[in-house]
Computed example of a mutant assay.
Amino acid sequence: MSRPGLRERKKTETLRRMQEEALRLFEEQGYDATTIEQIAEAAGVSPSTFYRYFPTKEDVVVQDEYDPMIVAAFRRQPEGAAPIDAFRSALAEQFAQFSPEDMARLRGRVELVLSVPALRARQVQQVVATERMIGEMVAERTGRSPGDLEVRNFAAALIATWSAGILVWVEGGGQDDLTAVLGRCLDHLEAGVPL
């Protein structure tokens, strides 16, 4: 796995700094009372830089660098691996790189999304984009069209599985290993979701 270049690392650092400062300010003074100007100032960037990374205030919470990283990890999986196995391995690879601080930040973001109606609405749009991205990756791997019903259904089921696992993880206080929780969810999906 190649290390990102200096420019990409600086972009990721800037994104994280803005997100961390935003989350700190939201916790201190509330989501609605915090302005983009305050976030930019706390992160040491201009408001125009903020907008280059995040089109809206909601995006500073719901967007992250994880989707492109999961895409790259998925594409590194063996060509013959079934999509669900490739996603399982890609997630394990991704979360193995997370520090305890990364996990705490993820948990804090999910808790904030659950508590602010505007963020929940924006998260729905983000989920649609991620679902489309997953459909394209699965279509590419399987030689099918991203518009095929089965490809779209798989992508939607995968998103629902991840969402359920992340909610269980957050509700448990983030104490469980998120990779293990998501692995159990994928196993359940792969088994046909028996009860």
Rank of each mutant, 00 (worst) to 15 (best):
D85H: 06
T161F: 00
A40F: 04
L189H: 03
G108I: 07
S2H: 12
E171V: 14
E20W: 05
P68H: 07
Y31G: 08
A164M: 03
E41V: 11
F50K: 03
S115D: 08
M133G: 11
A92I: 05
T179Y: 00
G143D: 10
R75K: 13
E27P: 03
Q29C: 10
F50G: 08
R132V: 15
P78L: 10
E13W: 02
G172T: 11
W162D: 04
P117T: 14
A164L: 07
E37W: 01
Q126I: 07
E131H: 06
I39M: 03
L195F: 10
A33T: 10
R132S: 15
A86D: 03
R132Q: 12
T142A: 11
G135Q: 05
M137D: 03
F154E: 00
D59Q: 05
K10Y: 09
S48V: 13
K57S: 13
R122A: 15
T35E: 00
S145K: 05
R122T: 13
D67C: 03
I70A: 14
V170Q: 09
P194R: 00
D102E: 12
W169F: 09
E41T: 15
T12N: 08
T142C: 10
L167H: 09
E21N: 11
E65F: 05
R75Q: 14
L189Q: 04
F74A: 06
Q38Y: 05
A164I: 06
P55H: 08
S99R: 04
E27Y: 05
Y53L: 13
R9D: 04
E111C: 08
V45E: 02
A42M: 10
E8T: 14
P194D: 00
V113Y: 01
F26P: 05
E20T: 14
S163A: 15
K11A: 14
V62Y: 08
A40W: 01
R9Y: 12
Q38T: 07
L149T: 14
A43S: 12
C185F: 08
E13R: 00
M18F: 13
S89V: 07
G165D: 09
V71I: 11
L149Q: 04
R144M: 10
A33E: 11
A82C: 09
T35F: 12
E79G: 12
R52I: 14
E190T: 13
Q63T: 15
Q38V: 15
L195H: 08
A164H: 05
G147M: 14
L178Q: 09
Q77F: 01
A157P: 04
I84Y: 03
A191V: 06
D177F: 07
P146F: 08
R105G: 12
Q126K: 09
A157M: 08
R75H: 14
Q125M: 11
V110Q: 02
S89A: 15
E131I: 10
G80M: 08
G173F: 03
D148G: 08
R88Q: 04
A157V: 11
V113I: 15
R122S: 15
K10A: 15
Q125W: 05
R7V: 15
A96Y: 01
Q175V: 11
A92R: 01
V113N: 01
Y51R: 00
A157Q: 11
A82S: 13
D67L: 02
Q29G: 15
A22Q: 04
E101M: 02
P55I: 09
V45F: 10
A82Y: 01
Q175P: 01
A43K: 01
T14L: 12
F87K: 00
V116M: 00
I166A: 03
W169S: 07
